[in-house]
Structures are given as structure tokens and as C-alpha cells.
Design a protein around this nucleic acid. Structure first.
Lengths: 131, 131
DNA sequence: GTACGTGCAAATGATTTGCGTTAAG
DNA sequence: CTTAACGCAAATCATTTGCACGTAC
């Protein structure tokens, strides 16, 4: 299926717009609440189905943290810092790490690498100050 | 709470034994079915509660793949290859990558790193041969 | 003996699906 | 027009919780 086969419905356009403008890594509910401002009649099932669809098409990226799906429109390879206290997620870009991980992955026998994904688990600034 | 505070109930012992002997990354259901062979009356809630508990105590490790929790008793830092077709998970050990990721993580401002986690997404041998 | 763990069933939360209706191309 | 997408409600799946009873230490 080519990218040109994608039907750009109002719902999909609004979801993509929302993700492009959102600063962070929204959950399905975040996207639903956000998009509902403009498309008041959109259903949550449509949000679910479209986020999954758009991720499969490679137009957005899915990030699974602690069993909950989150989404982002930043397609440039990058990493995430995840706070073990409050769950906050921040982007962190290290081209060197991305490339190093890929170079290691290419060496693995009997495995055709597609992409790598590195998360950093720790304590964020806000939670550090609280203690 | 110290490690010595852990109550070693039959249920916990069987769960730990099962994980030590299992070759792979079992889901909660896998563990439940396995442990049930010996402890026929164990409840799934107990399996859930104990897997969570043991992971918090650091006696086992939790691996979240596509929103589903899996567990392993291998505590040595390592990575996972995850097949995008069939979902199969394999361990892959690269001490260099683990150390490199940690060294990068230590440089991040306003973040106290605890651990890093790298996954390789691609196609496994079995699925490659099928095409 | 007591605090913590267990089994069970019910509750919750995330996500998916079936179906009649609607709209994109 | 025709096929894929939508909205809605119901269904499913993973996981958690409340409570009366049982057991590790």
C-alpha cells in the first residue's frame, strides 16, 4: 500500500495537527480531548483506530510507557528519558547513540534490523528537588 | 524495606523457580499456567501481584512489549531483539552498548539516570524464511 | 500472635470490534 | 458511485482491588 492510498479525513488531519502542535507525548485520551475541541463529535474509537493506523503508516511514532501508548510526530531518531517517580517523558537526541546501536544491531545473526529504541530510566529534575 | 523482609511463600518460590527454568520471556498467563502445574489452587491475581512485587524488589525484570508485560530472571544487563512479524523476543548481550548508553545518559542535565534499556526491532530468522 | 499473603470475584482501565450510517476520492 | 472511515455501544483483554480467610516468621 502506497502512502498516496491514505484517505485524509478531517479526523486524521486534526489528529496529525494536534500531535504536531502538542509539546510532549500525549496519551490517546490527551489526543481525544484535544481534537474534540475542533471536532466535537469525534469518537474515542476513531482516535484509537487512527493513531494506530497513522503509526503503522509511519506518519507518527508510538511510544509505550508502563503499558500505556503515547504518541509523537517527531520522526527524527531520538531517545526518551522517563522519570520513575512521576512518569514524565522528555526527548533526548544523541545521533551517536542511535548510530552505535544500529551498528551493533546490524551484526546480530539471523535478524534483519529495522530500528532501535533506547530509553533512559531515572529521576527527573522536578522529582529530585522534591526530596 | 530490606531484602530480608521478603516473605518467601510457596507461591513466590514457585514463580521464581518457573522463571529461572523458563527459556524465554513469559507473559503473566504463561507464568500462571506454568506455576499452576504445581500449585493448582494459585490465583491469577496472586501471580500478578507477585510478579509486580518481585520486579519492584529487583529479583526479576519486567519487559513491556506492545503493552503487555513479560518477565525474566536474567538480571545481567542485556538487550532484546523483537520481531515485528511474530513478536518473538530474544536476548542479545552487548556490554559495550550497555556501557555506552549509560555514559551518554550520565551526561544528561537535570536527570539522575538509573538504568537504560535498548530494544532492536526487526524481522527474526523464522519470519524471514517464510517470505 | 500478628502482619502480610492468598484466593476469589468484582471493578477498573485500555483498547478493539460489530454494525448501520457517512463521506473521501 | 464505491469503498473505506465514522460514531456509537458493546465486547474483550490486561491488570488491580476489596474482603474474608490462611500462613510465614
Amino acid at each position: 500500500m502506497k502512502q498516496s492510498d491514505i484517505k485524509y479525513t478531517n479526523q486524521r488531519i486534526e489528529i496529525l495537527d494536534f500531535l504536531r502542535e502538542f509539546d510532549g507525548h500525549p496519551t490517546v485520551d490527551d489526543v481525544y480531548e484535544g481534537v474534540r475541541q475542533k471536532l466535537t463529535r469525534i469518537s474515542k474509537a476513531t482516535v484509537y483506530n487512527n493513531l494506530k493506523f497513522l503509526a503503522e503508516k509511519g506518519l507518527i511514532k508510538e511510544v509505550n510507557v508502563k503499558g500505556v501508548s503515547r504518541f509523537e510526530s517527531n520522526l527524527i531518531p531520538h531517545h526518551h528519558t522517563i522519570c520513575l517517580e512521576c512518569g514524565e517523558i522528555q526527548d533526548y537526541e544523541s545521533e551517536e547513540l542511535s548510530e552505535y546501536a544500529m551498528s551493533i544491531a546490524k551484526e546480530i545473526d539471523d535478524f534483519k534490523i529495522g530500528s532501535t529504541d533506547t530509553n533512559f530510566y531515572g529521576i527527573c529534575k522536578k522529582c529530585m528537588e522534591m526530596e
